[in-house]
Design a protein around this nucleic acid. Structure first.
Lengths: 221, 221
DNA sequence: CCGCCTACTGACTTTTATGTCAATAGCTAC
DNA sequence: GTAGCTATTGACATAAAAGTCAGTAGGCGG
């Protein structure tokens, strides 16, 4: 029952924000009385606390999952970005991040798991024969940060921004942008492999199917 | 008086969001009674409407101003980004954009002035001797969109993301990231000029320096 | 059967925010 | 002077949301 209440609250939280999560509405969604919600969580404050805790945890988990499962090793950054966009956008994680951050809830992204992504990318660059210098480390940090910022904000501002720039607001365009960004970063960091296909057309069938066996080199959490 | 009320409301809007703009608080900030606010604007709804209208207009104006005044012509994209960051962050425009967008207020960025930035950039690339093809146009659109997304979200998520990636959360680091992004885009679009200073910092060494005249070898999208 | 615990409910209380209203004060036009 | 207009106020009405409380129902160990 707690889980169902949290589910309903989460939907409202993502859609309309923390201030608009009303006990009565949440209770109505689940089909119980608002007193019951109070009985389970003690107070609205506590409900929101539990909700944030659960959401942040599942968010972290799903994002790390997407990163781990992606075939980063071979310039498949496009795939990773697609997976991340799905999690951030469809699951509403991006909106949640912004709701919480705007509300002053810094600890949302307060962990350091992006640092692990930096580490993984660095080892990838080393594997490409690049010398790991301080400036190259910073370059990698910036690249990861750019990817995180762009993907997260695209999930929220994407439609508005697209229209503004002159790009149609549809899934294909969003994907094209993601792939463009992926290619840009791959090039910037010199991660393209010799055996990679030339990737000239954005989405349709340009890449060979995933070879299994090539696990990503991402470190486990 | 209307202006003072709107000022107070704007501060609260940016800091704590639309839902938390209380008539009593706003009135208190200005030093009048809440009935007076109501007298001037009719309703809270109307106050928020007037506020959004004014804010969006001033936002548009200040951003366009920053873009127009920047010395873009000479690869001074760094300056432009710094100016934009100032407007977006210090003036709170970025937070406002996110508050409104999350609240379903799409028309915020619903105009098309970023399209004009795309046009300006395109003519710049043409002036650099590049042929304006369809894919190059799309490349430019993507670059402008990336810049807009990154600068806007950095003003909100910047601190949290920095810590997460492993970058210290201070102004210098934020500036470094902005400059890195500016250089990345300048290089991507082949906008560097012969008389430009060598801007050695961010990623020197990992790639041979850009030869002017050579178009980026990046595959068109 | 009985006592106890948990899930759950409806009715009530409290708080807080919006909005209404009548009244006051100052200023201007006639 | 006075009629009328605007800015302003305090007191009150209304509405909505959070939280309290006493009580019901059902399961379970003794």
């Amino acid at each position: 029952m707690r889980a169902e209440i949290l589910d309903a609250a989460e939907r409202r939280m993502i859609d309309v924000g923390p201030d608009a999560v009303r006990l009565q509405d949440v209770a109505g969604d689940v089909g119980i009385s608002h007193s019951n919600v109070l009985h389970h969580f003690g107070s609205k404050e506590a409900l929101l606390g539990a909700l944030v805790e659960r959401s942040v945890e599942s968010m972290r988990h799903e994002i790390v999952e997407a990163i781990v499962n992606a075939d980063v090793a071979g310039d498949r950054l496009r795939n990773l970005f697609d997976a991340l966009a799905a999690v951030l956008s469809d699951r509403g994680h991006a909106r949640l991040i912004f709701w919480l951050t705007l509300g002053g809830h810094t600890p949302v992204v307060g962990s350091e798991w992006l640092g692990q992504v930096v580490e993984a990318t660095l080892s990838l660059r080393r594997a490409r024969g690049q010398r790991v210098t301080a400036s190259m480390k910073r370059d990698t940090e910036h690249a990861v940060m750019l990817a995180a910022l762009a993907l997260t904000s695209a999930a929220v501002l994407g439609p508005a921004m697209s229209c503004n720039v002159g790009i149609p607001d549809d899934a294909a365009s969003a994907t094209r942008f993601r792939h463009w960004l992926a290619d840009l970063l791959v090039q910037q960091m010199g991660l393209r492999q010799a055996d990679d296909p030339p990737t000239e057309s954005p989405q349709k069938g340009t890449r060979p199917p995933h070879q299994k066996g090539t696990r990503p080199t991402y470190p486990r959490t």
